[in-house]
Design a binder for these strands. Structure first.
Lengths: 346, 346
DNA sequence: CTGAAAGCGCTAACAG
DNA sequence: CTGTTAGCGCTTTCAG
């Protein structure tokens, strides 16, 4: 479809105000109520009249006013998505999943980012509440997000989150399992000295636990470093350096995310160690970084689009059934094997 | 400030509806009109009454309904930002700049992404027009964006854009100059065989022109490849490979963006060439990739936050003065020297 | 500064 | 299916 096929404005008279539902009704020769019914896809409208209305709408270039309908119906048909940071690529995928179910159902989704919201000094949910969203998807780290208990809007938590609460709907990836996959992959390649680069935060913790489970299951010894630090590239670099110093025999490194893995690569390169010939590296998140031909990093994919889609379904259910039982969904991740892992040299 | 300091809902009675302007007026003992005035920061309100109203607002946890005010005032105090792709990091910066001027002025900004919008098959501007935005910032490639001529909403074009039109407000980075900076940097390092990895699209074209100017100014010979291809990592890799095959003497490569530079790095590595010892590489956009310690790529920064801020100012001006003269602003970029460039080995 | 009154464009309920 | 009738919560006159 070409852009020009879409009406931006039909009436060419410059002074003409935006057409209202009255104009449509007049032109179609029906009542205003009928137009409203057609707009909301009511089933009890005859095909002929529905078509007449639709024609009038097209000819006039009519667009219903969201403001008016929100005010009258006391609902906005819009949901808010709260994320940590627009720079975090997982949200794009999640948003795609979200919209794949919300768009067809006629919902509007708007996004707010804690990072940016913080600059304005407002409560990040303020905008959402002022615009009267019908539901909320919280896809931000628990410590950073506003408290959810007193929220009187239906919401679901998506992505990483402490699950113990049991008080909210949650859709997330099973990161413990993801980390286990990483370890199992390395074990299968014959590695026995597998270190883990960790950091603070809920995600890092889950991945650390998965690492420990995998290591235990294989009867190996755990090496964890960076546990209390950040999960940045720099942290990965420093942790990697420390690791090589104290445990020079390591043949595989599993980093808490792709960014840290990048840091680890820098540390390895600095020590003259090759990847994957001398040391295998596994990341997490399957970001564009990992996919890149230059880095070609083995990583874990969380299927974020599915998380988004499931979160949307859950939210819709919660909106129609505010009192139903809470739902907690954990999705299984996958390992994407690439060129940064190879059989153990030992 | 702690999250808990922000009122999410003050009245604890569960049945209580959201407070309206009437409730505020009653509690403050003033007229509804006065409340409306205070809300919009009118100057002719006595300090005492203003305070009384503010107190009532706080105590009630009152939030004005955007829908109602939009309907009554026929303006939404919101502006729409249209971008190409949420994955393109430049928009985050631009959004930050935008909001730094729009937030304090009480404007709301909502973002739509062509990539995602395309999935739903709707006109990407539909949402904006339906919600009746007061202004639009178009930060998308011209070929991908909807036609702007018949748009009857004030708008400004931000970022890369053909400037010849002269018909719209434009705020963008001077990419010709940016590319020249890159070449000058390499020339200063003694390089004489400087190749350029290009691609299709407006940005790539501007950068290519800048490259040519720089090369001419230095009296060198131009090597351009990939001119009609994409600007992806893969394209960079392929172009890099071709380059090394046909012009093995090259000592410096200037890529049209950081992603292509990454591809070029892969090609160099494959040929056993070291960066920067054998071949220097310069990217463009100064993305997180370039900044990373592992890649440590010399790149050009476009100051995207400034572009966003200027675009906001321009739009605000256009909204208050729809007929004023069009403004075209070109911001100067900077070169960020890092470890991927070094003196020429020759 | 106040109070009253009209109306923004739409939904929803009701009697025809 | 139609037409009428009320508002939704707020802004905006306008005369006090």
């Amino acid at each position: 479809m070409k852009w020009d096929d879409w009406p931006v404005k039909a009436s060419t008279d410059p002074g003409s105000a935006r057409p209202t539902i009255y104009d449509v009704a007049n032109r179609a020769g029906v009542s205003k109520s009928l137009v409203s019914l057609v707009l909301r896809g009511s089933p009890n409208v005859s095909g002929a009249r529905r078509k007449a209305v639709q024609t009038a709408i097209d000819e006039l270039g009519y667009r219903p006013s969201r403001a008016a309908s929100a005010l009258a119906a006391n609902k906005t048909r819009s949901i808010g998505l709260l994320i940590d940071d627009f720079n975090n690529p997982w949200f794009v995928e999640a948003l795609r999943g979200l919209r794949s179910v919300l768009d067809p159902a006629g919902w509007n989704v708007t996004v707010a980012d804690l990072q940016l919201e913080a600059l304005s000094g407002r409560n990040p949910l303020d905008g959402f509440l002022a615009m009267h969203v019908d539901g909320l998807i919280i896809a931000a780290e628990p410590h950073a997000a506003p408290p959810l208990r007193k929220l009187d809007v239906p919401f679901v938590v998506a992505g990483v989150r402490e699950l113990d609460a049991g008080t909210a709907d949650v859709v997330a990836s099973d990161e413990v399992q993801g980390a286990q996959l990483a370890v199992e992959h390395l074990v299968q390649l014959g590695h026995t000295r597998i270190a883990h680069l960790s950091g603070q935060g809920g995600s890092a913790k889950a991945r650390r636990n998965g690492y420990l489970r995998g290591i235990e299951a294989a009867g190996l010894q755990a090496f964890i470093t960076g546990e209390s630090g950040e999960t940045t590239e720099e942290a990965g670099y420093l942790a990697g350096r420390g690791l090589l110093e104290h445990h020079p025999g390591v043949t595989a490194v599993f980093a808490a995310n792709d960014t840290m893995a990048l840091g680890a690569l820098a540390a390895l390169k600095e020590q003259g160690l090759r990847t994957p010939e001398d040391v295998s590296v596994v990341g997490y998140d399957n970001t564009a970084l990992a996919e890149s031909r230059y880095l070609n990093l083995t990583s874990i994919d969380s299927h974020n689009a599915s998380i988004g889609a499931e979160a949307a379904h859950t939210l819709l259910g919660r909106i129609t059934e505010p009192k139903g039982p809470r739902r907690q969904l954990l999705l299984a991740p996958s390992l994407i094997a690439r060129g940064s892992t190879a059989p153990s040299p030992a």
